[in-house]
Design a binder for these strands. Structure first.
Lengths: 148, 148
DNA sequence: CTGCTGAGTTGGATAATCCAACTCAGTGGC
DNA sequence: GCCACTGAGTTGGATTATCCAACTCAGCAG
């Protein structure tokens, strides 16, 4: 948060919540159903101290919820709130991009959509349903920092 | 890259390239047309040394391209490659999520789609065009780390 | 000769991350 | 009762990364 004169922007705001290292990988695991601390630690490869810190901030930000699944012994699991579930398209978009431009070889993870096809996400305009992409949109209002 | 037993995954691979602080904000500015170093520094609010480092890694990763726009004096600009442009849906997804769950008040940045409507992105299945979301997809193959 | 712009570097302080080992509470085995 | 084990973290110390202001260097502009 260097924050004095930077552009006011929901991308930056979003990244302030989920943009730190491990946050999105934690969310990936939670959405995959890996909801216990040790499972998250094993699957992400992150060290336990920062994972604990991230889980705290994600819970505080309302992205995850910490739910006890047993008293005596006290045990909890982390589940995605509505806000956390709403990040699934972002994760799938990153996966799609990673599959295409980063990962060597075939995609390590493959999903099937309810329609039966192998899942690949596309970003479309919510109003008309046609693709969103370079040259298909125009800036109406831009937050902070005057621009050309 | 703690990397020994973590899940093999294109989300993690993608984040290894664009998941560090400032990377996606740099890309935001470049896609907005803010392609000069000083402009990026001003609009993101990041310090010049890490921005220089990030620009180097983004160029090395093929997300941005460093192009001279003048010799004598030597000046360059950064432009998004195809790979960089392919990240636009991810940025718009983050913006959408930030607008809804993080930013207080009205969205600071507003786009208009070529169809005339205010732009809101939706993630859909590329094959059938219907929404992607909770419960609408099934795991076919999962990289690394055995799971329930 | 001095100052300005663009595109970064450099140095030093501060903060975040990594890693292994440790804690603590409750169970299960013997 | 004693030992080991599981789940969910903490703690300490070393290593990196980030922040910030100030500096460089080249080519003009006055």
């Amino acid at each position: 948060m260097t924050g004095s004169s930077a552009r006011e922007c929901s991308i930056a705001n979003a990244l302030a919540v989920v943009g730190e290292r491990w946050s999105l990988l934690i969310l990936r695991e939670v959405l995959l159903g890996n909801v216990r601390f040790d499972a998250i630690a094993a699957a992400t490869g992150g060290s336990r101290d920062i994972l604990a810190a991230r889980l705290r901030t994600l819970v505080a930000a309302g992205v995850l919820e910490k739910r006890p699944y047993s008293e005596q012994p006290r045990r909890h699991e982390y589940v995605a709130t509505e806000s956390g579930q709403a990040l699934q398209p972002v994760l799938l978009g990153l996966m799609e991009w990673g599959d295409r431009y980063v990962t060597q070889g075939p995609p390590p993870t493959v999903w099937e959509h309810s329609c039966g096809a192998e899942l690949h996400v596309a970003a479309v305009c919510a109003a008309c349903g046609s693709p969103v992409g370079a040259g298909r949109s125009r800036l109406v209002r831009l937050g902070g920092v005057d621009q050309d």
